[in-house]
Design a protein around this nucleic acid. Sequence first.
DNA 1: GTGAAAGCGCTAACAC
DNA 2: GTGTTAGCGCTTTCAC
Lengths: 352, 352
Amino acid sequence: MQRTKLNLKKIAEMLGVSVTTVSRVLNGQAAQYRISLKTEQKVMDFARRHNFTPNEIARNLRLSKTNTIGLVVPDISNPFFASIARSIENEARHEGYFVFLCDSKDDTPTEAELIKLLLQRKVDGLILAPVGLDATHLNHLQQEGIPVVLIDRSLPEVSFPVVASDNFQGAYEAVTYLIRHGHTRIACLQGIPGTTTNESRIMGYQQALQEASIPVLDHYIVGHSYGEEDGYQSTQQLLKMHPRPTAFFCLSNLISLGALRAIAEHQLKVPEDISMISFDEQPYAAFLSTPMTTVEQHQEDIGRKAVQLLLRSSPPNASQPLLLPTQLIQRSSVKKIEQAAIDTEPLHQDKA
Amino acid sequence: MQRTKLNLKKIAEMLGVSVTTVSRVLNGQAAQYRISLKTEQKVMDFARRHNFTPNEIARNLRLSKTNTIGLVVPDISNPFFASIARSIENEARHEGYFVFLCDSKDDTPTEAELIKLLLQRKVDGLILAPVGLDATHLNHLQQEGIPVVLIDRSLPEVSFPVVASDNFQGAYEAVTYLIRHGHTRIACLQGIPGTTTNESRIMGYQQALQEASIPVLDHYIVGHSYGEEDGYQSTQQLLKMHPRPTAFFCLSNLISLGALRAIAEHQLKVPEDISMISFDEQPYAAFLSTPMTTVEQHQEDIGRKAVQLLLRSSPPNASQPLLLPTQLIQRSSVKKIEQAAIDTEPLHQDKA
DNA sequence: GTGAAAGCGCTAACAC
DNA sequence: GTGTTAGCGCTTTCAC
């Protein structure tokens, strides 16, 4: 644009005013400091003409505030986190913040490293979807005095505010639905064992079974991660069992995709041979070879709430996790099994 | 951690050395400046014990370098861009950069605003997937002297380096494939008209038709955006036509989802009634009610190349767009139509 | 081997 | 109404 980069000082010199005045005008404090309209115009005009805006880095340093937040997610290519990221970016920008996107690849050391670097970068806040197995690096964080909000997953050892779906309730409803359709041999294809999200869902699963007096079989709970491959492996394992489960409860969209792949390889059909319910609603769920019954989470809400909590919360550490409701979306991946009759009162609302 | 935040000066005082020395040690320049091992150890130990790292913002200001890059995409919740974002974040971090995630919502003014703010934030580089209809704000950018790389879409008026799929070739192969399966009434459900990505695909589509001496019908090219709803509307429109197209070539994953919805509503089946090929391979493509034949793009490569180009390119403006090959993934959404025989030599490799 | 001091560009307390 | 100036925390030139 111009030979030498502009700055407040140069502008002040050129305009014959002081740096202070330029700064004030540019920050919209002209009125507040009773700067004459003439001076204000002069500065504004110049800035506009030369397309000048103050150096943010200098402001950041001076004000000890960067207007940035760090977002760390396990996998941004997972549509679930992509939606959350979108919502967070949106909400943050409305508040004048930019967000650093970081992908931890579900690896705790990477997560710890990212957090360290973000702090070094002086982000004003941190939104984490932690891997969730180890909390030592998070405990460290507590003393840094920087606002932190956890999303999706949490850790018992840590007392940051949490925004997540009501995983217990979502799982409970899904499994209850399966039971009402006559299923008793219900497998659970889990995500990462030991993480709060996973455990809440498992508890919902178990609770539903127990209430129906169906024994909880440990070997019906399989899997180690939320990925596609894991769903595939878990299914291979489950299909070998005798008696075989009649229904799969998959704890993520990717797991269910892996399960579908394995089921197809075995020439089996959903729901004729295997009934299925999957966590995470997806745009394509309705168009799968068998439209999938899903437990929908509201990513928009999770993201929005997380930012609001981060930016507005007066108490740095909230106590109660903010649990957002899920919704069971009924399609046709669950077969009604005859021999069970149970009561038939409607429990869930339809959609789609 | 400690009462008053540490900084170089305080450390220097406490250790009885100068700020310079502390800075040098912490930057690994101890050897270079022949600092005594004793001093070095003293500083290092202190830093480690107090978990001290230099304030990045201050460094940024001093060095006029932020080690950040801005990423602007039209929709981060679109799996296509989510994958690219992941790849970019990864590659960038390997190079020591952080990335600001920005979602333009396919809105040019928003895009322009974001770019302005990112420049103010002094990002070291910009990776843009531009909306692609208006280039005025990008022309502006040219003079800022900041490295810019465009991905996915480009603009004729602008001369930034571009990394994208070979859209012409991808479309050409897909449509040729349809033609070889006997289709002549092939509709194209396009994205945003006037954008290079869209036009390249349209040209590939037309070229394939022309080579087969099939007339190009303007009213067979429908749609205005890459979204699901647009695919739905376009399909409604196409299904009303007489004669009806026998094949749909959809220019995005979301468009094809919308098309599937409309087709289902009309009680039609893929591929019996309508054959389909969709741009963008997706994990679920194989599990749709009819496994979808797709044109796969390599998002990983796009992201990686973009970062490399951005960070390594000596010439600020590259000339030739970097075109990455696509791959046709054959599944079963294309029906063979009898009355056409054509030659049968194999043209494409299979996968999945 | 080490240090003093200038300055990156900005804001704000304090003057007048 | 406007200006002077002291830093924010760091790097680096130049000096010894």
